[in-house]
Computed example of a mutant assay.
Amino acid sequence: MPMPTMTLSISCPDQRGLVAKLAQFVYRYNGNIVHADHHTDAVAGIFLSRLEWELEGFEIPRDQIATTFINYAQREKIFTSWQGVRWQLRASDIPYRLAIWVSRQDHCLWDLLLRQRAGDLFAEIPLIISNHEHLRPIAEQFGIDFHYIPVTPETKPLAEAKQLQLLKDYRIDLVVLAKYMQVLSPEFIEAFPQVINIHHSFLPAFAGANPYHRAYERGVKIIGATAHYATVDLDEGPIIEQAVVPVSHRDTVADLIRKGKDLERVVLARAVRLHLQNRILVYGNRTAVFA
């Protein structure tokens, strides 16, 4: 394991001196900064920052860093107002706990599980939820609890209540929709907003169902995949990662689907890794990705 670090992520109204003041907080307590990324959205007037430092030698016990930072920020008047300030601290040696949700397609599920087993994704995956039984053998092969929760329009509220309870019981930090072919309700998103979805097109093109068929009908020359945070608006959440591949008039719908699946695996894995490394800051319906 590499040396543990702490990451401070902040988005707030822009003002002078923020970079210096944040760095001074780390320096004051003998911290060694290993990564510092900042961005200002001049149109929105938003400042975004990701500051990562080594915990070895840092003079504040990790369970007291948050309180110390709040006191420091108030004392040094880092922010003219706390209104609009969003911040998070996360230690690198504490893995996120993921729940992977699937339907019948298995390509993204296999990819995530193999990457996690190989150490490419530093996370725990204690739970897989599906609205079909088809992929239970994969969960059993990896020793992961599998919960089958069928969903119909009539049973959706009850199904989502069961899903939310499972997320609480398993102490889940992030839900990954790995080709889970159901739309989450606004009530679910409000209760658990930390959800990453993979969509099989280069959004905002071909949102919704059957994007490869629609792309074929339009004779497109590229197809893509998009990983984004799920919101109440279908396929319109903040985009994390995208990729494209060229196609031609010779490609059938089946060819587009095959090529698209390859993209989906890679794009979803990249998005999940960025989240696990605390490299994504969301503001409005946009993201700053400090990759």
Score class of each variant (00 low, 15 high):
residue 1 M to F: 12
residue 5 T to K: 09
residue 9 S to A: 10
residue 9 S to K: 08
residue 20 A to R: 15
residue 24 Q to P: 05
residue 30 N to E: 13
residue 32 N to D: 12
residue 33 I to F: 11
residue 33 I to D: 06
residue 39 H to R: 14
residue 39 H to N: 10
residue 42 A to I: 15
residue 43 V to S: 08
residue 45 G to M: 01
residue 47 F to Y: 15
residue 50 R to M: 11
residue 51 L to H: 12
residue 52 E to T: 15
residue 52 E to A: 05
residue 53 W to P: 03
residue 53 W to L: 04
residue 53 W to H: 06
residue 53 W to D: 09
residue 56 E to H: 13
residue 65 I to P: 07
residue 69 F to L: 02
residue 73 A to S: 14
residue 74 Q to E: 13
residue 77 K to M: 11
residue 78 I to L: 07
residue 79 F to K: 10
residue 89 L to E: 05
residue 91 A to Q: 13
residue 95 P to I: 00
residue 95 P to W: 10
residue 96 Y to D: 05
residue 97 R to N: 03
residue 104 R to I: 00
residue 107 H to T: 09
residue 110 W to V: 04
residue 114 L to I: 04
residue 115 R to W: 11
residue 116 Q to S: 11
residue 123 A to C: 15
residue 124 E to L: 03
residue 127 L to G: 05
residue 127 L to P: 11
residue 132 H to W: 01
residue 133 E to I: 10
residue 135 L to I: 00
residue 136 R to H: 10
residue 137 P to F: 01
residue 138 I to A: 09
residue 138 I to E: 10
residue 146 F to Q: 02
residue 148 Y to H: 15
residue 150 P to W: 11
residue 153 P to Q: 01
residue 155 T to S: 14
residue 162 K to H: 10
residue 168 K to C: 04
residue 170 Y to G: 01
residue 172 I to T: 02
residue 175 V to L: 12
residue 179 K to C: 07
residue 179 K to D: 09
residue 195 V to I: 07
residue 195 V to D: 00
residue 196 I to H: 04
residue 197 N to F: 01
residue 198 I to Q: 09
residue 204 P to I: 03
residue 206 F to G: 02
residue 207 A to D: 03
residue 209 A to E: 14
residue 210 N to W: 12
residue 212 Y to G: 06
residue 216 Y to G: 01
residue 218 R to C: 06
residue 223 I to K: 08
residue 226 T to V: 02
residue 226 T to K: 06
residue 227 A to F: 11
residue 235 D to F: 04
residue 237 G to K: 02
residue 259 K to M: 13
residue 264 E to I: 02
residue 264 E to Q: 09
residue 264 E to M: 05
residue 273 R to L: 08
residue 275 H to V: 08
residue 288 A to V: 10
residue 288 A to K: 12
residue 291 A to D: 12
